[in-house]
Design a protein around this nucleic acid. Sequence first.
RNA 1: GCGCCCGUAGCUCAGCGGAUAGAGCAUCGGUCUUCGAAACCGGUGGCCGUGGGUUCGAAUCCCACUGGGCGCACCA
Length: 562
Amino acid sequence: MLKEILSDLLKQAIAKAQENGKLPIVPLPDIVIERPQKTEHGDYASSISLKLARAIGTNPMAIAKEIAACIPATAEIGAVSVAPPGFINFTLSKTWLACQVDNILKAANSYGNITYGAGKKVQIEFVSVNPTGPLHIGHGRGAILGSALANALSAAGFNVEKEYYVNDAGTQIDTFYRSLWARYQQQFEVKVDVPTDGYVGAYMIDVAKEIIVEQGDRFMKLPEKEAIAALGKIGLEKMIGKIRADLETLRVTFDVWFSEKSLYANGQYATAMKLLRDAGYLTEKEGATWFVSTALGESKDNVVIRSDGTPTYFAADIAYHYNKLVERKFDQVIDIWGADHAGHVSRMKAVLTALGLDPERLDVILGQMVTLRRGGELVKISKRSGEIITLQELVEEVGADACRFFFLCRSADSQMDFDMELAKKQSSDNPVYYVQYAHARISSILKLAKEHGIDYSQGDVSLLCHDPEQNLIRKMITLPEMIEVIAKTLEPHHLTYYAQDLATVFHAFYKDCRVMPSQKSTAPVTDEEMAVTKARLKLVEAAQTVLGRTLNLMGMTAPDKM
RNA sequence: GCGCCCGUAGCUCAGCGGAUAGAGCAUCGGUCUUCGAAACCGGUGGCCGUGGGUUCGAAUCCCACUGGGCGCACCA
């Protein structure tokens, strides 16, 4: 990647300057290559001389000049300059930039892929909502974050597995079973109430009705205990099926649906608990078993096994993470949780330490709360009043593409407003359409070229030397850098900004540079004009590749027409 | 009380140690006889919550304060 090439060049230049006695030998700080905000400062810059100035004790401008003088000429660099207070600025070579168009076309849909991840096994676990109710909009944010991050990490060279942890054990499942049994009986005019702690939502009635359509009243004839278990199991499958279908309409899919129950069946729960006990991190208190998190600097201990002998959610999660890191040997595990689970993070990390694992192997991304609005008006999403807007309703109203873009365009750790009115607008106000429109425009140019039978495969990219063309190429070649940033920070929101920037430079190019020869003109097309057309068609196709890839990473469609 | 996240343009938010702080929307004004005007160009608009500190250099790092959100169960 360019940044590495430049930082290597600087390293060599400094070494050379030191050999020549132009610079004293001092310990080298990290060489950071950054992108200047102002275009007149070039494409890349380094402040290395400002940092060296401290150690050397002379003025940074002089140091910068010495270093710059030792930078050898390379294909990539067009110019090196020094600017106060001591920056070394690099401008990319015009011919090198133009050549990148051919590289992009050659790489096609793999353009942007990098080797940063080195094939490391990464698991991203997200959504993982209890299968006891429908997904709401907050879950949508986690779903999109996870699926886009997975795409980006794959592009960054990681071996990624997406997982949904199904909480199919524990008290909430028992409650779900009893609630469903009540709704089922009600369909047969039995006077029973949904348990007071139960799930009262109308969707439970729908599930009960569905089961009756498929299986009739056969559960009414079973002993109650048996009926609850059998009915519940079917209901649970149906709920999971609904969740899966909801997510699929958002183009969110998983490689593994992992059952919590399986941790008890295969003995891994017991193994994890034994490891903690042997390491001295479990203690009995008030009839329950506690994880002694205070021994690891936490503010309080946590119950792992209740006094009635049942494991808590925390205990299951301990076994689950033991399974991920020890049994399945993921190099890195990323959990995406809602902000309401923030308190769970440090506990979970403490558990890993207690199990003798490196807590750095676990990253937790907390998606902050989402508020819904229509234009200026807040949409209440109170569970109690039953006004809750489900994820399904949101997707139906605004569409999967807009949903994905809007959930993605804010960093996970800031709360977000989701404006349904804006997301639905089919106009320039809406960034979703702005980006997709650029793609459609490109398709339409390429279609026109095809209709005219123009074969541009031999187009000469060195003709692409005008500013609008070069600026477009400049933006395109930062795709790999952007992917690396996401891999390092686990912040997929950069995708949306990149997509908008790319669309902007494309539209600017389109305005300034005509691609196809004018159809209205009566004069015959000259050879020079045709050569430019062919070069620009290559550029346009490359732009489509990069924009399409970006949309693809966001999980959005790249339409040929709108 | 303790912990985590946030406070940047009228609004929604990027930027998270570098050069004159950015985008979209809103607002004001320009641009269609030629590849899609769902587009482009320009103007207005900022004590980057407040106060200290570190640094050659701070919106960015540290401390205190302040406003908002979320946690602090033998719930998940």
